[in-house]
C-alpha cells in the first residue's frame, strides 16, 4: 500500500498519511462542495489500511473550519474507528485546536461524547 497524500485546496484540507509512521494528518479547512465525493476515497483508503495493518494508527486532526457535511463524515469515520478499537485495533485520535478557538474545542467535545472506546484527545495548541 502506498502512502496517501492529497494537497490542500481552498475548500479541502491537506491529507497526509505516511504508512511508515502510521500517522494520518488532516490539516486545514474543510467545506467541499461535495463532501461525500471528496472523503469517500479517503475513507476507503483508511478501511483498506485497517484491514491490512496491525500497527497503531494515529489521526491528527487540525481543522480550522469545517462545514456540516464534513462533521457528518467525521462522525462516520469516528464510528468506524470506534468499532475497530472494539475489535482490538490500536487507534488514537488527536483533535488539535487553538486554545483561543472555543468553537473548535466545543466541537471536539461533541465528537468525543458519542464515542465508547476510541481514545479521543483534545489538544490545545
Amino acid at each position: 500500500m502506498e502512502s496517501l497524500m492529497i494537497d490542500k485546496t481552498k475548500s479541502t484540507p491537506e491529507i497526509n498519511f505516511d504508512i511508515n509512521s502510521g500517522t494520518l494528518w488532516i490539516k486545514g479547512e474543510s467545506f467541499p462542495e461535495n463532501a461525500a465525493k471528496f472523503y469517500t476515497p479517503i475513507l476507503n483508503w483508511i478501511k483498506e489500511y485497517l484491514k491490512k495493518s496491525t500497527s497503531e494508527m494515529v489521526f491528527e486532526f487540525e481543522i480550522i473550519y469545517f462545514n456540516s457535511s464534513t462533521s457528518k463524515i467525521f462522525m462516520t469515520l469516528f464510528d468506524l474507528l470506534d468499532d475497530e478499537v472494539q475489535d482490538g485495533k490500536k487507534v488514537v485520535v488527536n483533535w488539535r485546536c487553538d486554545k483561543e478557538n472555543e468553537t473548535a474545542i466545543e466541537c471536539g467535545e461533541e465528537f468525543k461524547e458519542d464515542l465508547e472506546l476510541l481514545p479521543f484527545n483534545i489538544l490545545l495548541l
Binding site: Y65, N67, S68, S71, K72, M75, T103, E106, C107, E110, F111, E113, D114
Partner: peptide, 9 residues
C-alpha cells in the same frame, strides 16, 4: 450534534 455544532459555528 451536527446541528449543535453548526449553530455554534
Amino acid at each position: 450534534r451536527i446541528i449543535k455544532m453548526s449553530d455554534k459555528t
